[in-house]
Amino acid sequence: MRYALGVEYDGGDFRGWQRLSPHGQPGVPTVQASLEEALSSVAAAPVEVVCAGRTDAGVHAECQVVHFDSDAPRTPRSWSLGTTTRLPPSICVRWCLPVADDFNARFSARARRYRYRILNRAVRPALGRQQLSWERLPLDADAMHRAAQALLGENDFNAFRTVHCQAPHAVRDLQALSIVREGEQVRLEIQANAFLHHMVRNIVGSLLMVGRGEKPEDWIAELLAGRDRTLAGPTAPADGLVFLGPLYPAQWGLPEEVTLAI
């Protein structure tokens, strides 16, 4: 039987999503290793999972979607609650659903969404600091939003990926990108068919330079066209980044939060 899970986690305690070796690496916690250990305990047999999108160290997830196969006679409620009781406090399974055998958490997804939040004030945060980046200099969120619109569409994003990125090419379809100010916070939300390694954080790092007035708005378009990572801004901190989740066609029968609108 194949199942899909919606998984929420605080990435601050982990070295990222991906298990670092086939059997894990002692003393190096990852979300995947923790989840597989808990699922295997519930199944009383080894369980491996496939996720919609790997996250880096320190990055959080509101609804990561994974799939796994198991012959163990467990109900979806038993999978979700039993697994959560065996997980550290920073991870929980929000839901579990049986899915068709050809569902794949990674390849069936049509889009992925992230949110990045910046506390923009003179003093660093105390409350909620695990999911906030901090910028003490005033930011022009409207200028950042206008500059970001140059990134929309199918483009080569070499200027915004890390040199360690293993993707065979840098072409991605960026479907939506908005930046708004909410009091002392600046919130970026971004959606694409897929993302490159550090792509969101590198985009944010460059947009911060526009927001601070260090670069003009049209600089973002120039970076995109130039495809040169060395000319772009620094990688923004991981703290403010949350993987909101993937989006799937309605045919898979998943919860509304991870289903494409018709």
Rank of each mutant, 00 (worst) to 15 (best):
R115A: 11
G128R: 02
N120W: 11
A150H: 13
Y116P: 01
P125E: 04
Y114D: 00
R129T: 06
R121A: 15
R124L: 10
V123L: 14
R121S: 15
R121N: 05
L139S: 06
W134Y: 14
M144P: 05
Q131Y: 05
N120L: 10
A143R: 13
V123C: 06
E135T: 06
L139P: 04
Q131N: 07
N120E: 14
V123H: 10
R129S: 14
R136P: 08
D140H: 07
R136E: 14
R117C: 04
E135G: 02
R124C: 06
A122V: 12
A122E: 13
R129D: 05
L151F: 07
A150R: 07
P138N: 00
D142S: 14
A141I: 06
V123K: 12
A147L: 09
D142F: 03
R121H: 10
E135F: 02
Q130I: 08
L119W: 03
D142E: 15
R146A: 13
A150P: 08
A126T: 14
A143K: 05
I118H: 00
S133W: 12
A148D: 08
A147K: 08
W134N: 03
L119C: 02
P138D: 00
L151R: 06
A141C: 09
R146M: 04
Q149G: 05
D142K: 12
P125D: 04
P125G: 03
S133E: 02
R115D: 01
L151W: 07
L139K: 05
A126Q: 12
L139A: 04
R129N: 04
S133I: 01
A126L: 14
S133D: 14
A122N: 03
W134R: 04
P138C: 00
Q131P: 01
Y116N: 01
A122D: 08
Q149A: 05
Y114H: 00
R117H: 01
R129I: 08
R136C: 13
R136I: 01
L119T: 01
A122I: 07
L151G: 14
P138Y: 00
P125I: 03
A148N: 09
R124E: 14
L132K: 11
A122M: 04
A143P: 10
W134K: 03
L119K: 04
N120D: 13
P125A: 04
D142R: 14
Q131W: 12
L137G: 01
L127F: 15
H145Y: 09
A143E: 09
R117K: 10
L119V: 02
L139F: 04
M144S: 08
M144K: 06
A141L: 06
A150W: 10
A150S: 15
L137N: 10
G128D: 03
A147Q: 09
R124I: 02
N120I: 09
I118G: 02
